[in-house]
Amino acid sequence: MLDVYIKVQNLRFSRGDRVIFDDVTLVIPRGKITAVMGPSGTGKTTLLRLIGAQLSPDSGTITVDGQNVDELSRSALYKVREKIGMLFQSGALFSDMSVFENVAFPLEEHTKFSAAKIKEIVLEKLHSVGLRGAAYLKPSELSGGMARRVALARAIALDPELVMFDEPFAGQDPISKGVLVELIRKLNASAGITSVLVSHDVEESLSIADHVCIMAGGRVIAEGSPEEIRASQNAQVKQFLHGEPDGPVPFNYPEDTMSDHGGKR
C-alpha cells in the first residue's frame, strides 16, 4: 500500500452558488510526484489552496502528514506551512526584493542561520535551478521562465517535505518546459520531496508523475499510475488526454450557473 502524505476525504467546497468540489476523495503518496490534472476551471488551484489551508472546506477533511489542516490553530498551521513549499502560477516573487533576497526570505524568516550560512544555501539553491548568476537581479528583470525557476528555488529553500506546483508549465516555451520537468524530477529523486503538480499539460505531467488524478466537474474521474490513466476507457478521461473538442466534457459554459469566476483566475 502507498505511504500516504496527504489525504483528501469527501471534500466539498463551493464559491457562492457554484460548487467547485463535490465529494472529492484522493490521496497523495509520500515521496512521489503526483499530478492533478483536469480542464481549466475545475478548481485545481483551489485544491492547492485548500491543502495549504488558505481556504476552508464546506465539509470533508484534508490531512497533511496526519494533521487535519482545517482544525489547526494559527501557529500550528504556520508550522505546517513551513514544511510546504509552493510554486505559484505567476511565480509570485516579491517585487521589492532582489532574486537573492527572495530566496533568502524563508530562511531569514524561519531559521536562525547566520548570514554566511544563508548566503551559502541561497547560492546553492539558485545553482540547482541554474540561476546562480542572476542572484542580484530584480524580479522585473527576469523572463517568465527564469522567474519560475527562481520561485522554485525559493520554494525549496527550507528543504520542505512537500512542494506544490501550480501550473508550472503554463505559458512556457518548450525549452523552459523541459528545464522545469528536469528540475522537478531531479528534486524529487535527490531529496525525496513529495510533489504535487497541478496542470493541464498532459504530456509533461504524465511523463514525470508517479501518480495521477484527473478531475472534472468537481469530482475525481480517474486516479492511478500514468500507465493506468493512459489505458483508461473512461470517455471523459480519453477526451481530456487526447484533446478532443467533442465529448462528455461540455465545451459550452453551463448557462444555469451564475458566471461567478471562481476556482481559477
Partner: peptide, 18 residues
C-alpha cells in the same frame, strides 16, 4: 493590489509569514 494579483500575498501566507 498588485501584490495580491501576482499572488505575492498568498505566497507570504504559504511561507508561514503573516
Amino acid at each position: 493590489g498588485l501584490m495580491k494579483a501576482t499572488e505575492q500575498l498568498s505566497s507570504y501566507e504559504m511561507m508561514g509569514v503573516d
